[in-house]
């Protein structure tokens, strides 16, 4: 079975310096849960950006959902992006929109009818515990509340891949555990999840998770789940 995400000899160079990421080759299995960890500056965000199509690699090939996305025509990008949910490290909520409208944004972009989006958005607000803050604007929300809005927005469109960059960066351990539980629940519904984090305590919280470790631009594979082509077989049973 081919992975939902396949990187092959991917390198990324910003400007003319040394490569930030080198020789990344790995394959992510559909429906699995991955942590991406590594020291600050190792290139976690850079890797995720290539994954959610906000950055083209300098070399190598990236396949998403079985298609090469490096050479993709610009007009086809939106179609791919709508299948990927992203929680940005800095949330990137739209400040003048209410929590409701922020969460509804992906549905509206996808052309969902106004009548059909009220119920799912309300359910999502309840799911992240913000049912009573539907009309609040992000600047009036606490950091943890903003983070939950960002997560709700990333998952409302039922993406096939959820990419989360330090989603527990600004919250207390209790909230971090709750959010992880949320991801886990999504994962059981079939979404492939990639979570970048510094926090090694988090890694043990999801029993089924695979760990990818980035160090100085190189990918290490402590659990052996990323071998490309997948070897060992145990991770793909």
């Amino acid at each position: 079975m081919a992975g939902i995400v396949q990187f092959e000899n991917v390198g990324l160079r910003y400007g003319t310096g040394a490569e930030t990421l080198s020789d990344l080759s790995f394959s992510l299995a559909q429906g699995s849960f991955y942590f991406l960890t590594g020291p600050s500056g190792a290139g976690k965000t850079s890797l995720l950006k290539m994954l959610y199509l906000s950055q083209r690699p300098s070399r190598g090939s990236i396949r998403l959902f079985g298609e090469d996305v490096v050479q993709l025509r610009r007009a086809r990008l939106p179609g791919f992006r709508r299948r990927i949910g992203v929680v940005f490290q800095d949330f990137r909520l739209i400040p003048h929109l209410s929590a409701f409208d922020n969460i509804a944004l992906p549905l509206r972009i996808a052309g969902v009818d106004e009548r059909d989006l009220v119920t799912p958005v309300r359910e999502m607000l309840a799911w992240v515990g913000l049912a009573d803050r539907a009309s609040a604007r992000p600047p009036t929300l606490s950091g943890g509340e903003q983070q939950r809005v960002a997560i709700a927005r990333a998952v409302i469109g039922r993406p096939e891949i959820l990419v989360a960059d330090e989603p527990t960066g600004n919250v207390d351990p209790e909230m971090a555990a709750r959010l992880l539980h949320l991801f886990d629940a999504l994962n059981t519904l079939g979404t492939t999840i990639v979570v970048a984090t510094h926090d090694i305590h988090l890694l043990s919280r999801v029993a089924s998770a695979n760990v990818m470790r980035l160090d100085r631009g190189q990918l290490h594979d402590p659990t052996g789940a990323l071998r490309h082509p997948p070897g060992g077989g145990e991770a793909y049973a």
Binding site: S54, R92, I94, L105
Partner: peptide, 16 residues
């Protein structure tokens, strides 16, 4: 710019 970037990342087309 930021609103546009976010919209793009969520799959907005240029026409939208």
């Amino acid at each position: 710019r930021q609103t546009i970037d976010v919209m793009h990342m969520m799959g907005s087309t240029d026409v939208q």
